[in-house]
Write a protein that binds this DNA or RNA. Sequence first.
RNA 1: GCUGGUGUGGUGGAAUAGGCAGACACAAGGGACUUAAAAUCCCUCGGACUAAUAAUCCGUACCGGUUCAAGUCCGGUCACCAGCACCA
Length: 805
Amino acid sequence: MKYDHKQIEPKWQKVWEDRGVFHAEENSDKEKFYALIEFPYPSGQGLHVGHPRPYTALDTVARKRRLQGYNVLYPIGWDAFGLPTENYAIKNHIHPEIVTKQNVARFKSQIQSLGISFDWSREINTTDPEYYKWTQWIFLQLFKHGLAYKKEMAVNWCTSCKCVLANEEVVNGTCERCGSEVVRKVKSQWMLKITEYADRLIEDLDLVDYPERVKAQQKNWIGKSTGAEVDFTTTTGDKLTIYTTRPDTLYGATYMVISPEHPMIEKWAGIIENMDEVKDYQAQAARKSDFERTEVAKDKTGVRLVGVEAVNPVNGKNIPIFISDYVLVSYGTGAIMAVPAHDTRDWEFAKKFDLPIIEVVKGGDVEKEAFTDCATGIMVNSGILDGLSVEEAKKKIVEFLTEKGIGHEKVNFKLRDWVFSRQRYWGEPIPIVYCEKCGYVPLDESELPLKLPEVESYEPTDNGESPLANITDWVETTCPHCGGKAHRETDTMPQWAGSSWYFLRYMDPHNDKALASKEAIEYWSPVDWYNGGMEHTTLHLLYSRFWHKFLYDIGVVTTKEPYAKRTSHGMILGEDGGKMSKSRGNVVNPDEVVDEYGADTMRMYEMFIGDFEKAAPWKTSSIKGCRRFIERYWNLQNILIDGDEIRPELESAFHRTIKKVGDDIENLKFNTAIAALMALINDIAAVGSINKKELSIFSILLNPFAPHVTEEMNQQCALGSDIIAAQKWPEYDESKCVEATVEIAVQVNGKIKAKINVPAECDEETALNTAKADESVSKFIDGMSIVKEIYVKGKLINIVVKPMK
RNA sequence: GCUGGUGUGGUGGAAUAGGCAGACACAAGGGACUUAAAAUCCCUCGGACUAAUAAUCCGUACCGGUUCAAGUCCGGUCACCAGCACCA
């Protein structure tokens, strides 16, 4: 019979659905396994072949774990709020809800055609009021615990989306989404105090199994640094506090720089003699975007404040004060001491403005460049610090400053609080009202969900208000606190909100009393294995870890960390080696592949394409290899014979493959697992027949990769009493993994001279004698003196010889 | 600049823990079958020297080291990818 994927695949998808074999069990005694993929954003373009890579990978793991007897939760849902849908809605005058529905339907049918074993009974959607009710609920808890606050601040404003962006969403001064210019704009924004969790977000990385690069990225982003704050006095009698990570270099501070926005400048307006020049510089700096200001390799600029000087607290010397935009108001204290001898930026600035450079750490040539090495230098010209190493000096000076009351140790973070407001329609409304009398008042929890009102137009307004601001009926309300007139918050939440806790909802998706029941959370937490793209390893991971820690603190969840293990897949590139995109015209649609070759071939190829964690270019011609393999598998039924034990000639090959496929699936080595199955089928072909037992094992091993064809084979050939999804993963016997006789390499002085066959358990003496008896070995050792003999069981022999004297 | 990673045939990629480099595929070439093509099956497939699938030598970015033995470990160099980047 011919292999017909079009007949086989829908048939089995229906069987699985009807029997509900992929539904996670409630109240189970089995060991649980929670596998999670990043839920997709249902865009208008539908899937491309990159999407199924992680889905198929974890599907393979999930299917294997089910066969091993685990109670597996492998859910999916839709991260459906967000700009592209809203923009599409605006352009085509369709409600975003309808657009979302259409896109979800398309995505769902595409994903289902691949036979991924998702538990569809737990499907969630962030735009569903029954879902976002709980997103809003979490926000209210954050608010009640003082972690959500409103602040007037300069925010990143996308000129095209007419919307505020988080720092994380600004890439090279442009909007991450649309690529338009981002400018700074002062607005009142909802903020979340993620900075309060900065330390724990670093420390608890020790509790989880993430790839090193992911942990490094998280730490990098949080940017913890330990240094000191030091008070400098000024000739006006004011105090100016600076932050430094090199307090040891204090004696080398020859000037001071404060940021153009530093409040002290206002105070000194009457004293500064060149105030016009200063004001000019401030105006220039304000005009620049953050991107321009922080652009590297740019010439240092600045203006000296004439009429005010600072005093170096350790040597009492007067030093000039400059303003320069290389000092950021938002980090540290907005003021630095400049040590040109030992800081590259200060050095450049000092050279340009011809300021003194005093060496305080010996080891470099500070006239040529700044000497920044902390490991080798010895302190000089530094009074009480002379002769110490940098590390010793740091300790001593901080002690000294603390004693004198003019400084102390200080930890700073690059991480800023999370700008949580968006002036858009298609997001969760923030459940807060503003009352003239009572200020910002949270809605009562019984009022949730606060649903999005119907509007005529989703266009953002030019003045930067959310489209919701125009719905007077909705905006005007009463204060939950005093009952007086009040108005609703019209900003909505960012897309990150719904995705910061979705994995909890899967545990108990239909609960209307809580975001999930205590029992469900206790049973399913943490996520055992979370796979996603590298593009989400800073933002989404950080935000969701933050929320989870907060929920832990208020007793909603039971684990400190949401995800026990995180892995990342590489991107699937176009055939041209570039990123798949509409504009490059290299997008491959999985529907066509499924139609022509079948879902099983598609799945196999996605897993066989290369190292799962690395990017790989799609190659249509290579798909054929996987299709050929499936057909070869299908044709095994033509050489099927009876038998209910693995025959001796295939025994070790089978046991080895069972071990390898199982191990490789757990280690993300899907490509080599498939290679092992291909090798096994080659062994079977060499034998010329396969018996029922062997075919049954082969089918179960292949099932996680190619579930449809294996089920069909299982049924057609009556291999098992039930469908494969209800069977057991085969066991292997370690002792049967090795063959009775093995071929080992024989080297003389490290060069291979021969290969000999010996019993696997052969002892050293026998092996060496066999080797020496071999003619192509003996001719190299006869007449030589043997210096050393090495025998690695089952692998090789190395005989080291030298000429006899 | 900092952090993390990568570098292996024409291509995608294998190589557990220092132990036979190139598994498994793709592409290519040759052959069988066929009126023909597709499909399928068989053979070859890192390089040099070769009549040779005899022997020998070279070969995992580059230079050096450790070792009986190095793609793998150590030191240095180069290139590429990703993230961060005037964060004091």
